[in-house]
Amino acid sequence: MPLVKTLPLDDVILTEDESTAVYRYDSGVVSFADLQIARGERGLKTGAVTISSSFLSPSPSHLSLDIVVVFVIIIMAGSSTSYYFVIIGTKDNPLYEAEFGSFKQGGDGIAKFREEQRHMNQFIAHSSLDCIEDQQWASKEMYLKTVDKFNNTWVSCFLTGGNIKFLLVHDTRSDEPIRQFFTDVYDLYCKTLMNPFYEVNMAIRSQTFDQKIKAAAKKYL
């Protein structure tokens, strides 16, 4: 990753597209709050800040003396929330997936995931399946709320009676609208299932289904 802008204050270094900042901290214990402050002072884009990895590297200025902790901060591009939605079948196979952005707060409904985040979403959704398997026996509810968290992304799940999972990867917490969205999806899924030519675990390729899902997202998310 090319580091082009070296900013003197607090040693915050930004990448070219300002999507990632590296923050060097020389002494003491660094907290998440410190990073938030650093971000505010630098006037970085308003977006979620995530500490994605921390690693040790020798400081060039104190070569033999000290070891500097370097934090990589990922700043989510854009200010509106983006969603990744996927339907998982009974054999952990994906049946349908979609990405959409928020329409709330003047959003345009277009997902603003960065390229590397898009495939991460699939991994996040996939890894949450284990958490669901744990939690599905603890509650009788179909809407399991948020089941997993990865950095600043949450995974919400709705589990149908036939063990079909609706997963939504999102970066803001709001249980009620998501529940309403899932209820609409369940309605659409049941209708799909009523089609005698559709069988459980088949991929859903209907254009009407796609349109109706997007409409539900526009209504609630």
């Binding site: 026996w137 509810e141 179909m142 009676g161 036939g162 899924y189 299932l193």
Partner: peptide, 20 residues
């Protein structure tokens, strides 16, 4: 059965429960 199960739970609405 596969279809009826989902339909039945859908019709129960918010009170629908998965049996564990």
């Amino acid at each position: 059965g596969q279809r009826f199960l989902e339909l039945l739970l859908w019709r129960e609405g918010r009170t629908a429960k998965r049996e564990t």
